[in-house]
Structure formats: C-alpha cells, structure tokens
C-alpha cells in the first residue's frame, strides 16, 4: 500500500469531503495561500477557491463563533485552530455555544462543525504552544473528540468528523505531520467509538492516545524481550469511548497503563483508569496506572521539556513493576 504523511492524509480527507459536499468549507488563519504554518492545507485553495478556504484575521473567538452559526444554518465548517493552546480563547463559542445547541433546543438545532487543531510537546515551543488540551473539551457533553495516531487514522477520522452532525474536535500531534503510514487509495471512513487493537498481548494492556500509541508500541517491543506480552490499544476517539474493547482487554490481561500527553491530573488517563476500576475491578491484579504529561507548564529548555512527557522507557519500567506484582503507591 502507498504511504503518505499525516499532513497529506488530512489534506486528502478535506479535499475528498469538499468535493463530495459543497457545504463544507475551511476557516482559519493563513489557511489559504500559506496552507497553514505546518503546510497541512497546501493546494486546497487552488482547487476550492477563497470562498471555501477562507483566511481570517487573528480573531479566534470570532471565527469559531462564525463556524457555529454557519453550522447551525446549513453549512459544514472545518475550523483550523493553528495551535491547540488557542483553545482557551474559543472556549465560550465551543463549549457554551456549539456543544449545547442541540440539547438546549430539544434536538431541533444541530452544529455539524469540526475544529481541527493540534497538541504535543517536545517541539521546543514553550508553555503556550505545546499543550495537549484534549481533556478540557472531552469534559464537555455535546463535543466529540478524536485523536488520530497515524496518517491512516487522521484521514478516516477526519472524514467521519465532517459527516458527523455534532461539533467534533480533532487533535493532531504537530510532531507527527511528516510521519508516514500506509493509507489506502480507495475511500474509507473510521467510525467514532471504535478502538483499534494495535498489538495483542496477554500480560498487560497499554491504552494510549495519539503519539503515545508509538510510545506504547515501542514499550511493547522492549517488554517482549523480557517476556512480557503487552496489548496496545488506541481508542482513536476519546468521546465517544469504546469502553467495550478496553474492558475486554483488561479482563484478559488484568493489568493496565493508560498513556496520554495531557497533564496527568484530572486528565484523560484518569477518566479511562477510573472506568476500568469501576467496571473490571475484580479482574485486576494491580492498580491501573496513569501516565500523562507532568503537571507543569511545558518548559522551553530541552533539558527540562523532555522530562515532562511519557517515554517508552518509563512505560516499560511501570509495566515491569505491575507485572512483578509490586504494588505501586504514589509518594
């Protein structure tokens, strides 16, 4: 199968959906000629013109509000939010306006929009350009949240997001834009709420989102050399969450580590770990562990930044302890 980059995959998904449905349009800063700073949208304005690939001023709450209104009245906007960190600026439009319209109207209104943005540290971009804020929006009922872990997921999830009748937030890892993966030429969609078992194993389940899937897969290879067979699962969407697949896996392995790049406290890892505790407690041989980013603003210095994110070595160490039956108590 041909291999394309995550960036190309997103670009293809948008182009295909824009060809298929003329109500789809893109709105954001430097999305047209510049094709975004990450060049993800390059070429789209040439095909679809500036009426469907619209450059905005640096007015994030404004253009997200516009997207909400356009979506409520018959369009399918895809908003480009240049950095995930800017989600704080648009919280009212996203969480009070987009997320709640359908419910508040008793099902009469709907907001079929996509907010595509990014996440991920270690790009040496410091505290306001490196955050992974998926937990913030996953907390809000009415929003769906997708976290592609490769080019394949990025394309399939984007297409599903655009056709979904709800506001969907997609977090792409900005360090993965140039990563290649096999992506079929023919059309495919990835349904929301279907986890992907990336690797099977009997001893421990590693549940990981976005780029943390790679971290988990590397850890699994290292663990295999020690005779520990790790199962790696990518939920692909954290809202909706495919609980079923996660629970079945943990029933089998009886141990789990949940890995996500958001801050560890009050985060995605906590939510998933808690569901496992509630639903498969009696199958567990060890506490479910969370591994998130350290609870600090992301520091600029490489010497510090690298310490803040989960690593394969860290996962291996924790998995080893869980499998050895060592109880782990946080200090």
């Amino acid at each position: 199968m041909r291999e394309i980059t995550l960036s190309q995959a997103v670009n293809e998904a948008l182009a295909e959906e824009m060809r298929r449905d003329e109500t789809v349009f893109i709105l954001g800063e430097d999305v047209a000629e510049a094709g975004t700073p990450f060049k993800v949208l390059s070429g789209l304005v040439e095909e679809f013109g500036t009426d469907r690939v619209i450059d905005t001023p640096i007015s994030e709450p404004g253009f997200v509000g516009l997207a909400v209104g356009a979506a409520m009245t018959g369009a399918r906007p895809v908003v480009d939010l240049m950095f995930g960190d800017f989600i704080y600026l648009v919280m009212d439009q996203l969480c009070n306006q987009a997320a709640k319209q359908h419910y508040m109207s008793g099902g009469k209104l709907q907001v079929p929009m996509v907010l595509r943005t990014n996440m991920g540290a270690t790009r040496r971009s410091a505290a306001q350009h490196s955050q992974s804020l998926q937990a913030l929006v996953a907390h809000i009922p009415g929003l769906k949240v997708a976290m592609p872990s490769s080019a394949y997921e990025a394309k399939g999830l984007m297409k599903t997001a655009i056709r979904d009748n709800n506001p969907v937030v997609i977090f792409e890892d900005k360090l993965m834009y140039q990563d290649k993966a096999p992506v079929p030429e023919e059309e495919y969609l990835i349904p929301f709420g279907e986890a992907n078992v990336k690797r099977e194993g009997r001893d421990i389940t590693l549940i990981a989102t976005s780029s943390m899937v790679q971290v988990a897969e590397k850890a699994a290879v290292m663990l295999a050399k020690e005779g520990i067979e790790a199962e790696v699962i990518d939920p692909r969407t954290i809202v909706p969450l495919d609980e079923e697949t996660l629970l079945e896996s943990v029933k089998k392995t009886s141990r789990a580590i949940v890995i996500d790049e958001g801050h560890q406290s009050y985060g995605v890892t906590a939510e998933i770990a808690s569901r496992l505790n509630e639903k498969v407690f009696y199958h567990l041989d060890a506490p479910v562990l969370r591994m998130g980013a350290m609870d600090v603003p992301v520091p600029f210095s490489p010497a510090l930044e690298d310490l803040t994110v989960p690593t394969p070595e860290g996962v291996v160490e924790n998995a080893r302890k869980l499998c050895a039956g060592e109880m782990i108590h946080a200090a």
């Binding site: 410091a126 306001q128 350009h129 603003p297 600029f300 210095s301 510090l304």
Partner: peptide, 15 residues
Amino acid sequence: GKAEGYCRGKGGSMH
C-alpha cells in the same frame, strides 16, 4: 534554554 537565562531556560525566545 540554559539555566542562567532570564527565565532560567523555562521561557525561551517567546517568553
């Protein structure tokens, strides 16, 4: 990103 920087390396160019 060095310790003797004005922000002890925590800020970098943008801070």
